[in-house]
C-alpha cells in the first residue's frame, strides 16, 4: 500500500515537472519583448536593457527555467508583466470565484447525475433510460458558452431572476454571493452531467450484473433493498475517478462561463494573459490549473485503492 502511494506520488511529480518544463519552453516562443511589455513603448533603450537584465531575460532558457523552478518551490511564481503584481497574489485573488463555481456546479451535477444514471441503469431500455440518454447526448453537444448566453438572455435579462453580470463576494452575504454564481454554476453543471451519467449508468449496469446481486434476490431481498444496499455501493466507486477527471473540464468551462458572466475568476485572468501575451502570468495559471488536476487525480487514485479492496489486494502482489 505504502509502496503504491510512493510510486503514485513519484509519477505525479514527474508529470508535473514535465508539464512545467514544456509549458515554459513553449511559452518562450511567444514573440514580443516582456521588458517592452512592462515598460511601454516610450521606455529608453537603457531602461529596457536594465530591466531585461534584472528579469533574467538574457540568460539561456534552461537557466531561466531553473530560476522559475526554484522560485516555484518557495511559492514565488514571478511578477506579471502586465499587472506588475506577484502572480501568486493574482491567482489567490481570483481563486475564490472559480472554486465556488466549480464546487457549486459539482454539487448540482453529481446528485442529479447519480439519480438519472442509476434510474436509467435499473430501467435499462425503458423510457427513463431513453430520456436519460437523450439528455446525455444533448448535454455533450451543447457548447457551454452558448448555453450561458441563452440562460443569460432568458433568466437574467428576461425574467430578472439573476444578476446579468458580476460577482458578489461572500463578505457581502452568503446568499447574495450564492445568487451571483448560481446561474453560471448551473451552466457548468449541465456540461458535466452528460459524462457523469454515462459513467454512473455503465458502472451501475455492471454492478447489477454481479453474482452478488443474484445472491441477494435468492436471499429474498426486495429489489429496492438489494439495489440500495449492494449495487449502489459497487457502482459509486467508479464515478470517483471521473469526478476527478471532470475537474479539468470544469476549469476549462469556467474560462468561457466567467467571460460571459463577467466573473472575476481564473478564467478571465487566463484570457487576459493570453490576449496580452503575459508569459509569466500564463505560466503561473497553466501550472496552477494542471497541477490541481494532477494532484486531484493522484489523490483519487490513492483513495480508490483505500476504498476498493479488490484493487488493493491486486496491487499488493506487485
Amino acid at each position: 500500500m505504502l509502496n503504491f502511494i510512493v510510486k503514485r506520488l513519484f509519477s505525479g511529480l514527474v508529470v508535473l515537472f514535465f508539464i512545467s518544463l514544456v509549458t515554459f519552453i513553449v511559452l518562450m516562443w511567444i514573440p514580443g519583448d516582456p521588458a517592452l511589455l512592462s515598460l511601454g513603448t516610450d521606455a529608453t533603450p537603457e531602461k529596457l536593457a536594465e530591466l531585461r537584465e534584472s528579469m533574467g531575460l538574457n540568460l539561456p532558457w534552461y537557466e531561466q527555467y531553473y530560476q522559475w523552478l526554484t522560485g516555484f518551490l518557495v511559492g514565488n511564481l514571478g511578477n506579471s508583466y502586465v499587472f506588475g503584481e506577484d502572480v501568486f497574489t493574482l491567482l489567490v485573488q481570483r481563486l475564490p470565484v472559480t472554486i465556488s463555481l466549480a464546487v457549486l456546479s459539482m454539487a448540482i451535477a453529481i446528485p442529479i447525475a447519480i439519480v438519472i444514471g442509476v434510474l436509467s441503469a435499473i430501467y435499462k431500455e425503458q423510457w427513463i433510460d431513453y430520456i436519460a440518454r437523450s439528455v446525455m447526448q444533448l448535454g455533450d453537444a451543447m457548447p457551454q458558452f452558448w448555453l450561458a448566453l441563452v440562460f443569460l438572455v432568458f433568466f437574467s435579462a428576461g425574467l430578472g431572476w439573476f444578476p446579468v453580470a458580476g460577482f458578489t463576494p461572500v463578505e457581502e452575504g452568503f446568499f447574495a454571493s450564492l445568487h451571483s454564481i448560481l446561474l453560471p454554476s448551473i451552466v457548468l453543471a449541465i456540461g458535466q452531467i452528460g459524462p457523469l451519467i454515462r459513467i454512473i449508468r455503465s458502472s451501475m449496469l455492471s454492478s447489477l450484473e454481479q453474482d452478488y446481486m443474484l445472491m441477494t434476490s435468492v436471499n429474498g431481498f426486495t429489489k429496492f433493498r438489494s439495489i440500495g444496499k449492494y449495487a449502489l455501493r459497487g457502482a459509486i466507486i467508479a464515478p470517483l475517478t471521473i469526478i476527478a477527471m471532470q475537474l479539468a473540464g470544469i476549469l476549462g468551462g469556467a474560462v468561457l462561463v466567467e467571460s460571459i458572466f463577467a466573473l472575476p475568476g481564473l478564467g478571465r485572468l487566463l484570457l487576459m494573459a493570453v490576449e496580452q501575451r503575459d508569459l509569466i502570468l500564463l505560466q503561473g495559471i497553466v501550472i496552477f490549473v494542471t497541477g490541481t488536476v494532477v494532484v486531484v487525480n493522484m489523490v483519487t487514485d490513492i483513495l480508490y485503492q483505500i476504498v476498493n479492496p479488490m484493487i488493493r489486494f491486486g496491487g499488493s502482489h506487485e
Binding site: 509519477s11 514527474v14 508529470v15 514535465f18 508539464i19 514544456v22 509549458t23 513553449v26 511559452l27 516562443w29 511567444i30 514573440p31 479539468a248 473540464g249 476549469l251 476549462g252 468551462g253 474560462v255 468561457l256 487566463l270 484570457l271 494573459a273 493570453v274 501575451r277 500564463l282 497553466v286 490549473v289 494542471t290 488536476v293 494532477v294 487525480n297
Partner: peptide, 24 residues
C-alpha cells in the same frame, strides 16, 4: 506515457488557448 499523461492534465480549452498565445 508520462508525456501523454501530462498532456491529458490540460483542460482542452486551456491547452488550445496557450498554443494560440504562442502561435497567434
Amino acid at each position: 506515457m508520462r508525456i501523454i499523461d501530462g498532456f491529458m492534465a490540460f483542460p482542452g480549452i486551456l491547452l488550445a488557448m496557450m498554443l494560440v498565445a504562442v502561435l497567434g
